[in-house]
Simulated scan of single mutants.
Amino acid sequence: MYLAYDYPLLGAFWTMFWFFLWVLWFILLFRIITDIFRDKEMNGWGKAGWLVFVILLPFLGVLVYVIARGKNMGRREIAQAREQQREFDAYIRETASGDTRRSHAEELTKLSELRSRGEITDEEFARAKALILNDDPPSTSSGPTGTTPPAADR
């Protein structure tokens, strides 16, 4: 019952402050360890040295690392995030399009069927074939969405 009187408000503030700094230091420590492994320019011995320094003398190691290499930590993180985004976008494009060779062959087959039935002219066939083989977007817009539908879908 007397615990509240034995622990004043300022003591609770300082306890929360030091706990917050301790958590903040751990977050910084893990970001530094991640940055050490992320750096492609540093060789293995450099990474091992920094890891030993940061782990054996944690407070001094973190402080020295932030002073010595902290300027480029953000740049490396941004470069890694951009690389991940590029890889993700490439994966999405690849997954959404399926096997491009097979889809090109299927589109060309549909085009030749349309031409043989007389639904498209030879000029339209040649233009659509060039678009498929070059993977170029159509240059004219005639559809309601602003894009020209492929000749195979007409």
Rank of each mutant, 00 (worst) to 15 (best):
F30T: 09
T95G: 06
K129F: 05
Y65H: 09
F88Y: 09
I92D: 00
E83N: 06
R117W: 03
F37N: 09
K40M: 10
E87V: 11
I36T: 09
G46V: 00
E123S: 15
A90D: 11
W45I: 03
K129N: 08
S97I: 06
S116V: 04
F88A: 09
A126E: 15
S97L: 08
N72T: 13
E113G: 01
Q85I: 04
S116H: 06
S116A: 09
G74H: 07
L63V: 09
I36A: 10
G74R: 04
V52N: 15
G74W: 14
S103K: 11
R31K: 12
D89A: 15
D99P: 10
I27W: 10
E113C: 01
L56W: 13
T95M: 06
I78E: 10
F20A: 12
Y65K: 07
R127D: 14
A68C: 13
I55E: 06
L108V: 12
M16R: 13
L51Y: 01
V23N: 02
W18E: 08
L28Y: 02
M42Q: 09
R75F: 04
M42I: 15
L111A: 10
R117H: 05
N43M: 11
F17K: 02
I32D: 10
E94S: 11
E106F: 05
T109P: 03
I36W: 15
F125I: 03
F17Y: 05
S116P: 02
D99M: 12
W50M: 14
R115V: 00
A128D: 15
M16S: 14
F37S: 10
A81N: 10
S103N: 11
Y91Q: 14
L57F: 14
A48I: 10
L29I: 00
E119T: 15
I120C: 01
A130W: 05
F17L: 08
G61P: 15
D122A: 14
D89H: 08
K110P: 03
E113F: 01
S103D: 05
I92T: 00
G61F: 07
K47S: 04
E87C: 01
I32Y: 01
K40H: 14
L131A: 13
M16Q: 13
G61V: 04
V23C: 06
E119N: 09
E106S: 03
R102D: 06
H104R: 14
W22C: 11
F17D: 02
E94T: 14
M16C: 12
F37I: 01
E123H: 07
E41Q: 06
